[in-house]
Design a protein around this nucleic acid. Sequence first.
RNA 1: GCGCUUGUAGCUCAGUGGAUAGAGCAUCUGGUUGCGGUCCAGAGGGUCGCAGGUUCGAUUCCUGCCAAGCGCACCA
Length: 536
Amino acid sequence: MKEQLEQKIWQAIEALQQAGTLASFVIPAIRVERPKDEQFGEYTTSIALVLSKLAGKNPLETAEEIAVSIKKQGAGEEKVFEKVEVVKPGHINFYFSQKTLSAGVADILKQGNDFGQSTLGKGVKVNNEFISANPTGPLHLGNARGGFYADSLANILRKTGHEVVNEYYVNDAGEQVIKLGHSVLKDEEAVYGGEYIDELALKFAGAGDAEAVGKVSATYVLDEMIKKTLQEKMQIVFDTFVSERTDVLEAGYTEKAINLLKEKDLTLEAEGALWLRTTEFGDDKDRVLVKQDGTKTYFASDCGYILYKMERGFTQIIETWGADHHGYITRFRAAAQALGLQTTPRFIIVQLVKLAKNGVEVRMSKRAGNVVTIDDLIERVGHDVARFFFLMYAPETHMTFDLGLAEERSQKNPVFYVQYAHARLCSILRKAAEENLSYASADPVLLVHEKERMLIRELLFFPELIDTMAQDFSAHRLPQYAMRLADKLHSFYDACRVIDADRPELTSARLQLIQATRIVLAETLTLMGVAAPEQM
RNA sequence: GCGCUUGUAGCUCAGUGGAUAGAGCAUCUGGUUGCGGUCCAGAGGGUCGCAGGUUCGAUUCCUGCCAAGCGCACCA
C-alpha cells in the first residue's frame, strides 16, 4: 500500500511537470511514512518541502497541487484514501477510507496466518550463522541475546520468502579444546572453572592426556549442555551444526581455501609464515594463515569455512557476533572478498548484557548465587519473558536486563500484557462459539468507531512492518508492535462491547475484528518465538 | 594510542533531515466489580552528552571534544 502511494505521488508530480505547473527537474526519491501522531492520518509525506527549492515555489502551494493531482488520479476508482490533506509547513497527509479498513479486515480473515507474507526474499538463500559459542562451557547471556534475535530474524526472513539455514559453527579444532582438557584435568594449564568443570572431571578425567580429555569433554559440552539449552530452554532450532574439525579441516576446505588464495596471488611468505594480504581489503595489517610451526591458524579455518559456505550456494550471509569479536569483522570481510564471495556478509553485532534489579546492577557471580547462564535465567524468568526482553532492544545498545520487571508476573511486565491480550481475544471467541454466533458473513463496514479504526489501521501496518524488518534486520520492532497492538485492542475492548444480543450485525462485524486481531497478534508472537496462550 | 559501539524522561529503551521528540516501569489523578480488570482514561517529567559545521530546517548528517562498554596475537 505504501509503495503504491509513493508511485501515485511520483505520477502526480510528473503530471504537474508535464502540465507546466511545476518546473522540470529530476524527481527525488519519494518517502511516505507513518506520521508521528495518529491525528495526521495513516501516511504522510514531506515531499513538498523537499521540492520547494527545486520547484521554486512555496511548499504549501506545491503540496496543494500534488494533493489535487492525486485526487484527480483516483477519481472514478474505489478510493483507498478518503481524505488527502495539506497541512502547515507543507505536509501531505493521507487517511484511509472506511472501505480500505473493512476490506483490510476481510483480507486478514481470508489470509489467516499467511497475512503479512511477502515475496521480498524470493530466490534468496540465506546462511544465518549465530551463537557459534565454543564448546568449552555453558551458554551465557550474550549468547542468549544474539541467539533470540537471530532466531526471530530467521522467522521474519522466512515469512518474506527467504530460504534460511540456521547454522551453528562449532570451533572444535583449536587450542581451546586442549585448554578445556587441561581444565578438566585441573593441571597447571587449566583456564576454565566452575561447576560444569567438576562435572566433566568426574566423567572424563581418566580419558587420557589433555587433548583426549578435551575432545570428549567438548563433545559432551556441545551435545549435553549447549544443544540441550538451545532446544529445551531457548527453543531454537538449528538446521545444521558445522564442525570446524570434520566439516572444514578434515573435509579439506581450509587447504582448498589456502591454495585458492595462493593462486590468486593474495598471499605472501614472510618470517617463516604464510600470510593473507588482507591489507588489500582494508585491514591495517596482513594476517597469518600458516604459522611458523606449520600449523594453520583459526583465521585459515575461517577461510575454509567461508569457502564451505560459498560452495553451498548461499546468496546472503548473516553473521551475528558478540561485541567482543567485532574487531574480527574487517578480517572476515577481507577473507570473504579475497575468496571471491559474491555477496557482502552482513553483521549483527550484539552488545554485551548487563543485569540489574531495581536499578542496581547485579554483578554476575556464581558464588553470590546470581544468574550467569541462560539455563539459570530462563529458569528464573521463563522462556517467553527472556525472549521478549532480549528481543525488545536493538542489538547495538548496551542493554541492561531488568530482572525486577522480568520477574514481575503482572501487567507491568509487557510480555504478560501482550499475552493477556491474546488470551482475552480467545476468550471472546470461545464465548461466541458457546453462543453459536456465526460471523462468517458479517459486514466490516459497520466498524466505524474511532477505537475500531485505530485497531484496524494497526493491523493493516503489519505487512509493511514485516518487510521493513526483513530489510533492515530490525527484529526488535516486533515486541514494540505487539505492545502497541495489545494496547489498541484493550482500548477498543474498553470502549466497544463485542457480543451484544441487541445488535447481532454489529456483533458479527466486531467478532470478525476480534478474529483478525487474534490472527495478527498470534503471528507476531509466533515470529518472536513467544507463546500465544488461549488462556492464562 | 588506535578501532568499533553507545550517550534521548527518575530508570530501561524506541524513533526521526521537517508538524507539539515517544513507549514501558516509577510518581500522581480519575474511571471501571462488566464479552476474563493481569483493564481503561489522563497528568507531571526532556538543553535528544558538549561545541562547531552543512541545510530553508539538525535530536537525526559531518567534524572535534567528553563519558561509558568492548576490542587491538603466528589465541580461538
